[in-house]
Amino acid sequence: MESLTLDELRALARVQGLDLTEPELARLLPLVQAARSMMETLRDVLPRDAEPGSQYRVL
């Protein structure tokens, strides 16, 4: 996945209805980049037949 740019983050924030200042966007960018990169690892390792599960055998 390509790294997100500041311009792209600004556009995404606007779509989300978030009114962020330039300093706020600049602080957020590395967090978003790191999160996207971490989550990309899941895409690479999850078997196709792995299903979501959110709670333990509730009986």
Binding site: A13, Q16, L28, M39, A50, P52
Partner: peptide
Amino acid sequence: RERLRLGAFVSGADYVNGQRARLL
């Protein structure tokens, strides 16, 4: 505030993949 805002930029697919990884 900053860490909460991060959630606006995580995709639906990433969320579901997180839930899929939980089961593994």
